[in-house]
């Protein structure tokens, strides 16, 4: 079984702060991490390999520094890693990104592709299905569990409103996983050391035969018109009321405003 798992290096968005004066993102020194959903995808791929055999290749698109993210995947236990990196990929939206990744997957060869549900810096959840479409593969998103593996199909649980669907999916397929698929393992020291010493394959746009008009900004139908800082953010608020009864009513009102109740 050839398994490819797609990962993205993202800024740790919980560490991205807004400069209150300039109203811009302070990204200086913000640590880069493997997108947490993708870490779960790696975990799912590794567990799959442990049970059913195969070879796991981690694939990422990004600047040369994204190598760090791939090293993390190697440390967790991936067998190989491929980074597609090219100035020409810059400015890609989900369409162009999924195209480039699909080309790389095709070059690596895959029977099963794992993706995280979405990336925390973009929150789109579109690249996984995009790759599947480019490769005309069956896809299942929001996968929380792989229940059975057969020669030509899988049985998986797909999260839906208030429960899950039991889905039979033909293989080859792409699975986009939820975090509940499995807590990503913390790499062992041995794995981390090994990962430092493993070669990472690097491909340019030419290496994956991606035509210029389909990648990067040129291959992206969407454009960012503007970026701005949202005004509404919840601040700490001490609720005060003459009686405890009124205090409770005040809180309930707030929770209803926030659509919790």
């Amino acid at each position: 079984m050839r398994i490819v798992v797609c990962v993205k290096q993202v800024p740790d968005t919980t560490e991205v702060k807004i400069d209150p004066v300039k109203n811009t993102l302070i990204r200086d020194g913000v640590p880069s991490i493997v997108n947490p959903f993708d870490e779960c995808a790696v975990e799912a791929a590794l567990r799959f390999r442990e049970e059913h055999g195969g070879r796991v290749t981690a694939l990422s698109m990004g600047p040369p520094q994204a190598e760090t993210a791939l090293r993390k995947c190697l440390a967790m236990g991936a067998d190989a890693a491929v980074l597609i990196s090219d100035r020409a990929f810059a400015g890609a939206d989900t369409l162009a990104t999924s195209f480039a990744l699909a080309r790389a997957v095709a070059k690596i060869g895959a029977d099963l592709i794992f993706c995280g549900k979405m990336a925390i810096d973009g929150d789109t959840a579109q690249v996984g299905p995009g790759i599947a479409e480019h490769l005309s593969l069956t896809q299942v998103t929001n996968v929380q569990k792989i229940k059975e593996v057969h020669a030509d199909h899988l049985l998986v649980e797909r999260v839906c409103d208030g429960g899950y669907e039991l889905v039979r999916a033909k293989t080859p397929a792409l699975l986009a996983v939820e975090k509940t698929v499995g807590e990503p393992r913390y790499p062992s020291v041995r794995g981390s050391v090994l990962a430092q010493q493993t070669e990472i394959t690097k491909w340019s746009a030419a290496d994956i035969e991606a035509p210029e008009e389909k990648i990067g900004l040129n291959g992206s139908p969407t454009q960012v018109m503007q970026i701005f800082t949202p005004e509404t953010q919840l601040h700490s608020e001490m609720l005060e009321a003459p009686s405890e009864d009124a205090l409770c009513d005040l809180l309930i009102g707030k929770l209803r405003q926030a659509e919790i109740l």
Partner: peptide, 17 residues
């Protein structure tokens, strides 16, 4: 705690910034 130190540079995992 290890994971927190690795990603947030403190064992509680409080925001590095």
């Amino acid at each position: 705690a290890f994971r927190n130190v690795e990603s947030k540079f403190n064992p509680w995992g409080v925001s590095w910034s």
